[in-house]
Simulated assay, not measured.
Amino acid sequence: MDSAFFSMIFRMKYITRWGLMRSSYPETLSEHSMDTAVLAHALACIGASRLDKPVDPMKAAVFALFHDAGEIITGDMPTPIKYHDPQITEAYKRIEAEANRTLFSMLPDDLKPYYEPVFHPAKEDEAYWQYVKAADKLSALIKCIEEEKSGNSEFKDAKAQLLSMLSSFDLPEVQVFMQEFLPAFSKTLDEQSRE
């Protein structure tokens, strides 16, 4: 049986993010997904090691790898449009869910159980999706910081909004990450190397 699932997943590298913004460098969905996976893993590691939470960082990372997979089919909907109106938001969620169902249906039946939690989240995995949601916002914030470092002020408002969102997250892991690891993203390579 021929399956297009993985060839579709590998198309993430063709989907560009931040379509309404002038970027110093383009960011693909593939890059964003990897960054989000690294961050979700880090947040879950902080939760497990410092806050004694019963979480598996590997599971958080895998969920994050596929968190925007539906955008292979839908493309990246800019945030100001996606959340401008509740009806648009609801319609986009339905479209996103259908895109995820389409991708999932491309898997051979024997592999579906392994991908089921990724494409059809269960209630008991809600904590992991909170890590993914926070990591998604942290990834966007880091993009804003990197653009700012490049002299691009286009991301100034997005950065302020993301900082506000992240400060209201009910996850102590996010605050730990922001205090301990986020400042290094504003430094040059030489400054980071001296620490």
Results as ranks from 00 to 15, higher is better:
residue 6 F to N: 06
residue 7 S to G: 10
residue 8 M to Q: 05
residue 8 M to L: 11
residue 10 F to E: 14
residue 11 R to T: 14
residue 11 R to V: 09
residue 13 K to A: 11
residue 14 Y to K: 05
residue 14 Y to H: 12
residue 17 R to S: 12
residue 19 G to Q: 14
residue 21 M to V: 15
residue 26 P to C: 04
residue 28 T to F: 03
residue 29 L to K: 04
residue 31 E to K: 09
residue 35 D to C: 06
residue 36 T to E: 09
residue 38 V to H: 07
residue 39 L to P: 02
residue 42 A to D: 01
residue 43 L to F: 02
residue 44 A to R: 02
residue 47 G to N: 02
residue 50 R to Q: 07
residue 55 V to Y: 01
residue 57 P to C: 05
residue 59 K to E: 06
residue 65 L to R: 03
residue 68 D to F: 09
residue 70 G to R: 02
residue 73 I to T: 10
residue 78 P to H: 04
residue 83 Y to A: 13
residue 86 P to C: 06
residue 86 P to V: 03
residue 90 E to S: 08
residue 90 E to D: 08
residue 91 A to V: 03
residue 94 R to P: 01
residue 95 I to E: 06
residue 96 E to I: 05
residue 97 A to F: 02
residue 99 A to D: 05
residue 103 L to W: 11
residue 105 S to G: 09
residue 106 M to V: 00
residue 107 L to W: 02
residue 108 P to V: 00
residue 110 D to S: 10
residue 116 E to M: 10
residue 116 E to A: 07
residue 117 P to C: 01
residue 118 V to C: 04
residue 119 F to Y: 15
residue 120 H to I: 05
residue 122 A to C: 02
residue 122 A to Y: 01
residue 125 D to A: 00
residue 127 A to C: 10
residue 129 W to N: 06
residue 133 K to D: 13
residue 133 K to N: 12
residue 138 L to I: 14
residue 138 L to F: 02
residue 141 L to S: 08
residue 146 E to G: 07
residue 147 E to N: 10
residue 148 E to R: 13
residue 149 K to D: 04
residue 149 K to W: 07
residue 151 G to R: 08
residue 157 D to T: 08
residue 160 A to C: 03
residue 161 Q to A: 14
residue 165 M to S: 12
residue 171 L to A: 07
residue 175 Q to F: 12
residue 176 V to Y: 08
residue 178 M to H: 05
residue 182 L to N: 11
residue 183 P to Q: 03
residue 186 S to A: 15
residue 190 D to M: 12
residue 191 E to G: 08
residue 193 S to G: 04
residue 195 E to V: 07
